[in-house]
Design a protein around this nucleic acid. Sequence first.
DNA 1: TTGTACGCGTTATCAG
DNA 2: CTGATAACGCGTACAA
Lengths: 336, 336
Amino acid sequence: MTIYDIAKMAGVSASSVSRVINDKPGVNPETRRKIKTLLEDNNYVPNEIARGLVSRNSRMVGVLVPEGYSLHLMEGAYHITGRLSEVNYGTIILKTGCSEAECAEGIRSIEERNVDAVVLMGSRYANDKVARAVQHFMPKKPVFLLNGEMAGANVYSVISDECGGLSACVKFLVQKGRKHIVYISDAMDRPSSFQKRQGFLQGVRETGIYKDMADTRRFMYEGLNNDIDSGERIMEQALLEHPDTDGLICATDMLACGAVRVLHRKGIRIPEQIAVIGVDNSSFADACYPRLTSLNNMILESGDEIASKLIASLEGHEPKANRIMLLTEIVERETT
Amino acid sequence: MTIYDIAKMAGVSASSVSRVINDKPGVNPETRRKIKTLLEDNNYVPNEIARGLVSRNSRMVGVLVPEGYSLHLMEGAYHITGRLSEVNYGTIILKTGCSEAECAEGIRSIEERNVDAVVLMGSRYANDKVARAVQHFMPKKPVFLLNGEMAGANVYSVISDECGGLSACVKFLVQKGRKHIVYISDAMDRPSSFQKRQGFLQGVRETGIYKDMADTRRFMYEGLNNDIDSGERIMEQALLEHPDTDGLICATDMLACGAVRVLHRKGIRIPEQIAVIGVDNSSFADACYPRLTSLNNMILESGDEIASKLIASLEGHEPKANRIMLLTEIVERETT
DNA sequence: TTGTACGCGTTATCAG
DNA sequence: CTGATAACGCGTACAA
């Protein structure tokens, strides 16, 4: 059902139908009414695609999400989708592989869809290959990067101070009198993980709980996956090597859930014997027993910030700043 | 950068460029090479939108997800997105309101995007208004409904036997010697919730643990939201009214997480004093302490089934059956 | 107030 | 092997 079909039925030209559809003036009220009912009766739906071809904008935003179990990130994407839906923008979600090449390919791939703007979910996209792909394939299109930094005049980054946050976590535990703090990192293949690690190191340095880097290293563990099982396995290992652990910082809430489980099993009281902090402030922090104290790294808030900037940008108001940093904060619950 | 630009640079016609782009025969190898490098050098990306205009298909699938905190559903959508990405199909996610009218409006809205097929995530879409919208706006387009049934020759439903599953949960607990089983329902505004409720009633009837409907009703509670807090509040209430409760079935894992928290607080041993079963078999079942026994209602598997059928359908193989039911199963962990 | 003609970027058809 | 032309569905000058 096209405007031509309707036009034929109404005995008018397609232009008139177009005018009616878009509420433009210059149509006889009588004709307008006639066309309108015809439109209704035939369940006519305009083809936004064809529209976009002529108006040169598609009312679509591309959102790239890396594959793998990063439910929290997906929650953020979902949130952005909601905001865009409100202003009648569609969201094309593209799940990309995790390698730099696959991420870059995602840029090319989404460009095919002629989207008006692009959102990159997560620090995984913050690398040179992706930056080059952006400059190649969409040098003028607004690109928003969540939780990472990227060069480019058209790239807007919203990052969260995870480094400072992790450092604050260490200080927080030290203030509570903890002396033997273990850090369980998530898989180190993203800038975000690196930032968190740096933050932990900084916190250790500033509080002076360990005497040197070599000493500190002994208290740092790395998970392969960011899931509960992984947290469990590492905690077992950590307790074996450091029976006197009295503080624990996990790079994700999921890892913390696993770690907490081990503590329960061993009859270790939380937080009396070991205090625990996670990162993400996700639903898992709430599902954990006891409720998990967690560093809010502002993923959802960043998404919201991006959505706002995105919508403004789509309406012609270019963001003034290319980089925004959201400060993190510790949300204290029952494990500290 | 269009094929015309490239054509001009190569000193050929757009047709030849098109042939090269689509790997079609009938181009002089020499010319082909020349065009190919030109394409590369200029970072040419074909406009899938314009392509779709002529080929009358957009290589896009619309996925409707209801707003509200249904993380598990979103996980399913994410999964489908991944499957579609593999075969180079884009996914347009549209978050719709929860009312029937808003759901139906979603159908119209997604049709504007000219998608090749539509997926409706969740039983919320299984209502007459949506069914009518489908028949109005996309009577010939393949529509897949997850966890619900809908009339229409072009509608394919993948439902899970939640009714049978809930009934099985009751029997499962009764077999373990439980006599006072409480049921905490999620918000009753979806067919799925109704199914689960029916299943509980059926289980009660078949095991004969309660003498009549009025008696049974006393053990049934309803949550306003499907979150942890809600589970907590209801459990408090239930324990007050039924101190002798020895079995608990929660309509979602989230509710169960909240309920379990209350049991911990009151020093009630799980599963010795009260056995607990959730529904969804989600990450929250794993995050719960103790690990939550949960009815796998096959949301993820349904999504996978839909993805397969969808891809096949897009390639011209229409599904043979309009309705498929996936049987649910209890995944036993530590709370029973 | 209405209709004609053209362009958006691409593919397909057909003639050369 | 190559190129001109029409068509996809719509919006928009411009002409009537």
